[in-house]
């Protein structure tokens, strides 16, 4: 086994909102071709951590290394220039635009200074096909007419299209039924198989065990455990999440 290279490596990350310290010195890594689950109870700071990675809400302190080099992430544009794509808990799609338009939003292709619709439509279709997405009727369907699962699919496919190196999914299955959850989890795995580093936030631990290679557990703004899915179990993860077990306790 070759030692895996972290696509992203965070050290000593801190973030406060006024007097409230939400991230208290976080260390965290995600690897190419692997799904890393980020779990923790409500308010643990998971969303705050990934908003920092997305450049939406920069961290106060700490080191960010991307593919080995130190970087700053102060804007969404900066983050996406490194190949970081985020699929948000509250979906960041424009309902009034269609699938193709959403997939290329902010990265439109031009020809003669005008939108190159055929090229975008083709690439969007190819990206969806590569991920074996069959549930959408038409790529020119407006997002307002899609189900929650279909919207997640579009959001995830968007990151494939942008040749993301790191894709972050914040509770992608939270609002989905059984079948749609299954589909999205399959999609997440196919995404990792394409060599992308995937971070997935989820409250559903059995889902996490289905897709993740590693599990990182946050508890009240601290990272309390990095676990290998194969070497841990449901109860241990729950114990870390609820704070009944700490890393020190293990040692």
């Amino acid at each position: 086994m070759t030692p895996p290279v972290p696509v992203v490596e965070l050290t000593g990350i801190r973030k406060s909102f006024g007097p409230v310290e939400v991230l208290k010195g976080i260390d965290f890594s995600a690897y190419a071709g692997q799904v890393t689950a980020l779990v923790g109870d409500n308010g643990a700071g998971k969303s705050t951590l990934i908003k920092g990675l997305a450049g939406v809400q920069p961290f106060d302190e700490g080191l960010i290394r991307f593919a080995g080099t130190q970087v700053e992430l102060n804007s969404p544009l900066q983050a996406s220039s490194y190949g970081i794509e985020v699929v948000y808990q509250d979906l960041a799609l424009c309902e009034n635009l269609d699938i193709v338009q959403n997939m290329f939003l902010g990265k439109e292709e031009l020809k003669f200074g005008t939108l190159n619709e055929p090229a975008m439509e083709l690439q969007a279709t190819q990206a969806l096909t590569r991920l074996s997405v069959r549930t959408v009727k038409s790529v020119r369907q407006k997002v307002s007419s899609l189900s929650g699962g279909q919207r997640q699919t579009v959001a995830i496919a968007r990151s494939v299209l942008r040749e993301a190196k790191l894709v972050i999914l914040d509770e992608p299955t939270a609002a989905l039924g059984v079948a749609q959850t299954e589909q999205v989890l399959n999609l997440v795995q196919r995404l990792a198989q394409q060599g992308v580093a995937v971070i997935i936030i989820s409250h559903n631990i059995s889902d996490v065990f289905k897709v993740a290679n590693q599990i990182s557990v946050m508890y009240l703004g601290q990272m309390v455990a990095h676990l290998d899915t194969k070497q841990t179990n449901y109860d241990e993860v729950i114990a870390y999440i609820t704070g009944t077990k700490t890393q020190e306790g293990v040692k």
Partner: peptide, 18 residues
């Protein structure tokens, strides 16, 4: 395109780098 996007969902537009 960006005008429609901002009109439809300003936050999504911002996150898309618009």
């Amino acid at each position: 395109r960006h005008l429609y996007a901002v009109g439809g969902n300003p936050e999504a537009a911002r996150r898309a780098g618009i």
